[in-house]
Amino acid sequence: MTHLVGGPAATPAYAPGLWRPVLRRLRADRGALAAAVLLLAIVALCLAAPLYAARIAQTDPFRSNISGQITVNGAARAVIEDNAEGLGLGQTPIGPTGAASYLLGADSQGRDVAARLLYGGRASLLIATVATLLCMGLGGALGVVAGYFGGVVDAVLSRLLDVLWAFPVYLLAISLSIVAVGSGLHLGPLVIDSGNPLLPAFIIGLVGVPYVARPVRAQVQALRRSDFVLAAIGIGVPTPRILLVDVLPNVSSTLLVLVPLLMAINMLTESALSFLSIGVQAPAASWGTIIQDGLALLYTRPLVALAPGLAIMLTVLSLNLLGEALRDALDPRLAGRRS
């Protein structure tokens, strides 16, 4: 993907204090409300994962239970049942039980899929959030610096961004992940273990930097030429103050709109990396790893692959809807398109 859904926002200059009409517009948008409720519900469910696993399902979603037994409707059944048909080869994990335990059935290690789904949501959301924050911070900073200072600084940073931008996204992510999964990350005093979920977050964040830096840079360049900034420079306001007071607030609306959209992209990227086995590592769960587990069971227990995919879709959908609504709320001219 080379751009975000719907394109970059327009850039009127807002002084702080005009957020109330934005919130008002957001509240009036029914689609946005529905999306927000859905997102909150998903987040709440995922945060409640330990509660669900301990109290309701009473299973340990990270402990292999291949030879385990459970009682369903009074009958004892094996969690992974041997196949008795024909030559009697292979075995199949138990399907959806409809009971509190193993609600959606078991995976090939005999673990409760529903519990793993919730824990997986935690991991996916956490990684996407951290990656987005990283993206925003680094990308925003680079964009501001490159756009404001211009000249050599801009040239160097732009070339770096070009290389990062042109590097086929998945290749970069895959290559970095293969190395990192092998030996972890060592950046001076900062050491991230190869099993740590922050590692894929770091990589996804890094890969997403150009998505943020480029539009921010373009906007800051325009701002730099605007009357009020030139005036501020003219009267000798120190640069840090200009950046803080004049540039950042205007850039913040762009960044804000990018947050949910970038979250959505990062969630998809994380799931793809986990699907390729270079994101979250076993036995930890993320929606991508559960899909991967599910693909090995696709012919016998398709629900294991379907459920996390649906979860991703609903989450990303609500994030996209929110992002659209936010953009429309921030720019009333754009909002005019809606009605």
């Binding site: 859904v5 959505a264 998809l268 799931s271 793809a272 699907f275 991508g288 899909i291 692959a305 995919g309 991703i312 879709m313 609903l314 990303v316 959908l317 996209n320």
Partner: peptide, 8 residues
């Protein structure tokens, strides 16, 4: 836009 392509 919200579906992972490999899942689809």
């Amino acid at each position: 836009v919200s579906m992972p392509v490999y899942w689809l």
